[in-house]
Amino acid sequence: MADLTLIASTPATGTLPVTRGTMTLSQADPGPLTSIAPYKGQAGAVSDALQAATGLALPGVGTCATGKGAIQWFGRDLWLLSDMAAPDLPGAALTDQTDAWVTLDLTGPQGAEVMARRVPMDLRLAAFPEGATARTEMHGMMVSVTRTGPDALRIMAFRSMAKTLAHAMIEAMENVAAL
C-alpha cells in the first residue's frame, strides 16, 4: 500500500472562459450531482423527504428550484440534485452523476441568439424564463439547458463531449458576434 493521491481534473473543454462579442462562455462547477429517480408512486413521498432534508421539493416538469443547493427536472421520472450531497431517499434510485457532466455557463444579452444556432428550442426569455430547464439535443449531443438568469444560461452535456460542446458554443458565439 502506497501513499497515493489522486488528482482531480476538470472536463476537457479547452481554454475557458472565452468572450466573443457580448457573450462569455465559462466552465461552471455545480458541485455534487445526484440523479433522483423515484420509484412507482413514490414521487410525492420522495419530494417530501427531500424537502424535509434539504428544503427543496421535486420541481415540476421543465422547471428547477434553488435553495442551498438546486434541483432540476431532468427527464422522465428523473431529477438532478446539484450543489449538495444527496440525503438518504429510500423511495428513489439515486446515482452519483458528479463526474458525468460538463457544465458551461453562457452569459450576456444574446444567449437566446447563440443557443438558436445550436438547439431546436425557443430559448428566448419569454418562452424560457428564469427557472425553466429542458432536456434537448445539440448537434448529436443530448444536453440540458437551464435559464439561471435573464442573461444567463447553463448548458450540461456528457463529460466525454466537453471539447465538442465548447467548440460548438464558441462557434455559435462567433457567428452571433459577426452578424
Binding site: M1, A2, L4, S35, A37, Y39, D77, L78, A92, A93, T95, D96, Q97, T98, D99, A100, W101, F158, R159, S160
Partner: peptide, 29 residues
C-alpha cells in the same frame, strides 16, 4: 429505474499475473 453511468466512471483493466500485487500496492486496503 435505469440510468447511464458510463460518463460518471473512469474504468481501467488491470490484467496479468501481477495484477493483484499491483492493486495491493495501490488500493487503500
Amino acid at each position: 429505474r435505469l440510468m447511464s453511468v458510463t460518463e460518471q466512471w473512469f474504468q481501467a483493466a488491470v490484467a496479468g499475473p501481477k495484477s493483484r500485487d499491483l492493486l495491493n500496492d495501490l488500493l487503500d486496503a
